[in-house]
Design a binder for these strands. Structure first.
Lengths: 246, 246
DNA sequence: CGGAAACTTGAAACCTTTCAAGAGTCGTGG
DNA sequence: CCACGACTCTTGAAAGGTTTCAAGTTTCCG
């Protein structure tokens, strides 16, 4: 057995927060040079995972806040009946792990959708680090806050019609990608149709049908897992269309 | 004795965190006597609002974290099209306002469902207070974390069948009430059917129908806005029933 | 007491799911 | 290099659950 995993040739280059390419997205964003140096020494760096590997599992002890350096991940929640829901997804530069804050145990599982590297602020260090680096506290709050409003948006999206859910998902993904320096028009999905469905509260069949419809309308170009957004404005327009009630 | 009273005749007595009846629910829970004293001096106390009043509005500048002393509140979000969603609700002893953490502006509106009093930790004080009171930081993180997982649960609930959504809502409400010292069987709703619908992603008609059905099944006793839970076990059972997929 | 708002109730319309089968994709091994 | 098997995705038709629409009825409050 033991499949020939593409093991990481550990580049011996020392990457710290200071010279990390994501510093303008990640925690250091709001921090001074000196502060960055400080947390750079504590952050555990460059863990590497393969598709399907867990960053952490539901029920795991909370180890710390993770920052994705490369790759994408999904947040999976199981309810008491074992039904699976995807409650969020993460791109490079985004922070996750906050679901372990409530009671020291993770409420969700996070797993890699492709080869993924990440950094980690160990849980035990957070308190002291926040005290030593005043702005870090605020920065962390900003990030949980953002996670929170993202969940709110996710909920609202999941209450709309199927068409809007899918277009909303594409727009969100596209925006978040572009904010992180990736092409906002050429999307290579790491999600399966099933994943998208579980994220949006739809069946994979419905997702498939709507993707096809958007393609037929000329708004996007769907080819298996690669999606080309042709007319984002019209996509946005169609996303907004359907409001009626108060 | 001294069971948690439902209402407070505006006693002119000086209430601080130390002698607050909710101290075992609110922030002070995890803190030492001395720490409580400390934050007790900073917390702005006992603002009072009437039904329909806003604790804060979407877009308002983030003023601080609020703790409800008495009464209930709902969190309302409007999407870009003006559609209204209820993204959460709060009982005495619960903290809200975290939706303002992301960018100094509240992403939702919070409004009182009945006469309500609350306390407030001013935003400007949070940083310094956290540095002075080490455990407060952890306690605050615990609370945001809890808010986060509550939202996840809310999302998952909203993906289920209508019957489970309503029973799930009743069970959640009942549990949270009892955890706060209120009767878990005798519920006096401060929500309208419309509110419940907006919270669960259902129309008010559907909520009405299902409430009636649960009544007819003998699981609850519905009388306008007062709900008596007769058979919570069976209610739980019916909530779990419907799991099939993996 | 009267009027507005909240709630109930029924029937039809609508959207998404379910079920079922076929097509495409990918990796492995002959 | 092609075949095989396992997935993943597509596509169609029927079933099912919620919403919508449309009246009523009740409750609440001035």
């Amino acid at each position: 057995m033991t499949p020939p995993v593409t093991r990481n040739i550990t580049t011996k280059l020392q990457i710290t927060c200071r010279n990390c390419s994501l510093s303008d997205l990640c925690i250091p964003r709001g921090l001074s040079q000196k502060d960055v140096e400080r947390i750079g020494n504590i952050v555990a760096r460059r863990k590497i995972l393969q598709r399907g590997d867990f960053l952490y599992r539901q029920g795991d002890r909370f180890r710390g806040i993770l920052a994705i350096k490369a790759g994408t991940a999904k947040l999976v929640s199981l309810d008491m009946d074992g039904n699976e829901f995807i409650t969020g997804y993460f791109l490079p530069g985004e922070l996750l792990g906050f679901d372990g804050l409530a009671d020291e145990r993770h409420a969700c599982s996070a797993l890699a959708l492709e080869t993924l590297t990440y950094c980690e602020i160990p849980a035990e260090q957070i308190d002291t680090l926040c005290r030593e680096v005043p702005n870090l506290l605020r920065e962390l709050f900003r990030h949980v806050g953002r996670t929170l409003t993202a969940e709110t948006d996710h909920f609202m999206l999941s209450q709309k019609g199927a068409e809007e859910r899918v277009t909303g998902f594409l727009l969100d993904l596209s925006d978040r990608l572009s904010r992180r320096g990736f092409s906002s028009a050429e999307i290579k999905l790491t999600f399966s149709r099933h994943d998208i469905g579980k994220y949006l509260g739809l069946t994979l069949e419905t997702v498939s049908r709507i993707l096809k419809k958007l393609d037929a309308m000329g708004l996007v170009n769907v080819n298996a897992r690669s999606i080309h957004i042709i007319d984002k404005d019209k996509l946005r327009e169609m996303f907004a269309t359907s409001s009626k009630e108060t």
